[in-house]
Design a protein around this nucleic acid. Sequence first.
RNA 1: GGACGCGUAGCUCAACUGGCAGAGCAUUCGGCUCUUAACCGACAGGUUGUAGGUUCGAUUCCUACCGCGUCCA
Length: 589
Amino acid sequence: MFDSEFERSLFDLRKAKLEEIEKLGQAAYPNQFPASHTVPMVRESWGEATAEELEASRVTVAVAGRIMAIRAQGKAGFATLQQGGERLQIYVRLDAVGELGFALYKLLDLGDHIGVAGYLFRTRTGELTVHVERLTFLSKAMLALPEKFHGLADVELRYRQRYVDLFANLESREVFVKRAKTLKALRQFFDERGYLEVETPMMVAAATGAAARPFRTHHNALDLDLFLRIAPELYLKRLVVGGLDRVYEINRNFRNEGVSTQHNPEFTMLEFYQAYANYHDLMQITEELVEFVAREVNGTTVTEYNGVEIDLARWRRLTMREAIREFWPEEAGAKPAHAAFESAAVLQARLHAAMDSLEGALSQTAHQTPERIAELKTIHGALTAVYYDSMKGAPVGKSIYNLFEAVVEPFLIQPTIIYDYPVEVSPLSKAKPGDPAHVERFEFFAGGFELGNAFSELNDPVEQEKRFRQQIGERERGDDEAHQMDEDYVRALAYGLPPTGGEGLGVDRLVMLLTGSKSIRDVILFPLMRNRDQGSGIRDQESAAKDSGPEVLRSDDMRSEDLSFLHEDPGPNYLKSDDLRSSDLLPDE
RNA sequence: GGACGCGUAGCUCAACUGGCAGAGCAUUCGGCUCUUAACCGACAGGUUGUAGGUUCGAUUCCUACCGCGUCCA
């Protein structure tokens, strides 16, 4: 538990103080405190009251909180209580609380929980303050708090010890309050529109519905290899077959892939399906949904992200081909003509010319900013990859999609819907009438990343089976993003899925936008972290002695202990896990 | 997986070109009955992430490893 001798000696000191507190007739760990108000309630009710009004009415309150600042002044003193995410000053005087009360005050430390009863007044400087008449000890902080002005700044410690981050950095608490409001607003939106909230399996025999590697686990009693789901998609559509016309699910998905500012191995996804709707309806719902949630959470649709104002109520809609032409970098030469989207050979020629053009631009970078040079290098690398992938036989639609990801997606800062996706990258979407090369699908973006993905669901079982077979062919060509056959899903379609629109939305990413968070780890309470070994910090003797014993776990080890089964070597029969590539929800690079 | 950056007291941060490892907050002791990043005085607190190497001498330079961050895959 201790990181140093300093902490150990502080802990011993605080234990001695607890004994002194008990000698004063207070319990070291009492069971309750009958508060009359929360700190936010006090601020709400009397935050504007004048000194005269407070004096005339003599409001008495009993509030509890954690001491976040303490200033003793001889026979009196102040402290700042924090509770419910807000702070309230208290004033303790010897002649008001008595000898015992003041002796307790002198034994208090930063971080202790106390309860106070007294009346409200304003100090000379105008601060709303409780004039304490009775002081109750509630719980002691046995370890030192972070620096009181800067809070806990170390990013790693903020993630690993979120319990400290939450009380030391109130803006961190605010992020998670907004996350809760986001979830509530999402549910309200769908509940009001007649959607049924459902829960589908997290542990599945085959990980379907998205393009990602799954985690593997095992059910002992049934001796059954299972995967953690990567998406609920195919289950939710089975429910629509079953007559649940409008369903939604907000739950965790698990993808066994890298960690980044936009990816955590477990993340929260909203998916919803609506019978008799198509992707045009979904575009409308998406815009309404994001706007509604922004207003519920922030009271406004304007949010600042990376220093840029984003209005989540103002959406653009572009087809993928329009977007590529619009965002085509001038350093890459002429924009692809429409014909370039029809034939692999023409597209390859266009890509090759763009690579040459970019190389030329990169050889004369005197007037470019370093940021732009880095962007151009990234774009050049991505175009090169698309080119060679195409030369090796990738379907033209897949190349167009990769081209879109390279030159458009990072630049979609303002809310944008991109629609009409190539059929080759959309095996679960329904084709556009009269245009078999494209499907009724869109993804929506803001802040430079994908927020969600939606389409008119393919409901022809024969066509679905054919698409799955095409995906198997893609996999044999070496594309590990190809989808896996799900025969029971095809069977469900054969019973008749009505025309249906379905959508997935990355809840963590929406919260990032609404809170201005640059990393997904800032909106996940306990993001996945590597194990810390003894490389940092001194291990206390107890845990060092019992290092291998199961009963003494270092706090840093607990998470990974819980999750260790997820990291086992897949082994030879890790079968199709790599191959289980499916739909299009938040596809991975 | 790759590139780059970071890791110094419980916390927030210094330490020039390699030359005695420092400050603020917090802690401890003393003073102070309207302070609010309270103030005044004193004390204490370090295996500079870990392990090696170069050097008369390493927080500083080199190598490997661990952890974190950013970008890329």
